[in-house]
Design a protein around this nucleic acid. Structure first.
Lengths: 153, 153
DNA sequence: CTTCATTTCTTTGCCCACAAATGATTAGTA
DNA sequence: TACTAATCATTTGTGGGCAAAGAAATGAAG
C-alpha cells in the first residue's frame, strides 16, 4: 500500500493516530475545561462534580440520590461519598424519605441556597477565560449532547 | 423581571440550568464515551487512559514520561503509577535515560508492539457502537480540539 | 569547584468514577 | 401471610487525576 504524496504525514492516514481520536479530544478537553473551573470554584469551596450536584439541587430540592444520579449520569457509588462531603460542608442535609426508607432525600440548607448567588457569576468567568465565541460554545455543547445520546447515556 | 411568555420554560433563560452548561455536556459525554471503550478494551487488558498511552507509544518509542505527558496532557503524577501498571502487564519497560538520569525512558516490549494489531480494530468498534455519522464525529472532534486549545492546554 | 536554581520523576493526600457485593426496604406474588 | 424479586443506597476495591512536597540529577554562575 502506497501513501498518497499529497499527504506528507502518514499519521493522517493512521486510524490509531492520537490526534484523530475523538476519545482523546474528549478526555483532554474535559479535563482541561474542568481545570479552568478549579480556581473559579475554589472560593465557593466546591469541586467541579460538587458544583454540578449543586446545579441539580438549585433546580429542584429535595431530590433523591437516584434522581440526582440520573440528571448527572453518575453512579450512586460516586454520589454517596460526594454528598457526605457536601453535608459536612453544611450545604445539604441527607435524610431518608419518610414515604420510602430506601430512598435518601438530599435537600439544600440555607447556606446551600445562599451559595447560588455566588455561583451565578461562574459561567461568565469561564466563558471569559475560554475567550471563545459563545455561539460556537453552544454549538459544541449541542454536539456533545448528541454524542452523549449516541453513547447511550 | 418578567419572563417572555414565548418561553414557557424559565429554565431556558437560567444561566445555571444544567442543560445549558458546556462543562456538564463535556464531562458527561466524556465519561459516557469512555464507558463505551471499557468492554472493547477489556480483551486487550487495557483501561482507557492506558490505551491512550499505548497510542502515544505506538507513534514513537521510547518516549520519556515528560514527552508522553505533553502528548496526552497528563501530569507526571498521573502517569507514574499508570506506567508501572503497564510495566507489570509486560507491555513496556521503564529505565532511566543514560544521557539524562532524571528522565525515564518508556519503551514498548514485544508484547506491547504486538498489541497494536488488536488495537487497530478498536476505533471501528467504537464508531459502530456510537452509530453516528463519521463526518459529524470528526466535526465534533475538531470542535473539541479548538476547545482544548482555548482552555490553554 | 561549589553553590544554587531548574528539571524530571516519584510520593503523598485528597477527590472522583465505577463494578461488584452488601444491606435494608419495598413491591409483587403465591 | 410468607416468599421472592426488585429497588435504593452504601461499602469495598481498583484505577484514574492533580496539587504539593520530596528526591535525584543536571545546568548555570560565580
Amino acid at each position: 500500500m502506497t501513501v498518497n504524496p499529497q499527504h506528507p504525514d502518514p499519521r493522517a492516514l493512521d486510524p490509531l493516530a492520537l490526534d484523530r481520536q475523538v476519545c482523546f479530544a474528549l478526555a483532554a478537553a474535559s479535563r482541561s475545561v474542568i481545570g479552568l473551573y478549579r480556581p473559579v470554584l475554589e472560593p465557593l469551596g466546591l469541586t467541579h462534580p460538587q458544583y454540578l450536584v449543586m446545579l441539580a439541587l438549585w433546580e429542584r430540592s429535595p431530590r433523591t440520590v437516584r434522581d440526582i444520579g440520573q440528571a448527572l449520569r453518575l453512579e450512586p457509588a460516586t454520589l454517596s461519598p460526594l454528598l457526605k462531603r457536601l453535608e459536612s460542608a453544611g450545604l445539604v442535609t441527607r435524610e431518608r424519605n419518610p414515604d420510602d426508607e430506601r430512598a435518601l432525600d438530599v435537600e439544600l440548607t440555607g447556606a446551600g441556597r445562599a451559595l447560588r448567588q455566588q455561583a451565578e457569576r461562574v459561567p461568565g468567568q469561564i466563558v471569559e477565560r475560554l475567550g471563545m465565541d459563545v455561539t460556537e460554545l453552544e454549538r459544541t455543547r449541542d454536539a456533545l449532547t448528541r454524542l452523549l445520546a449516541a453513547s447511550g447515556a
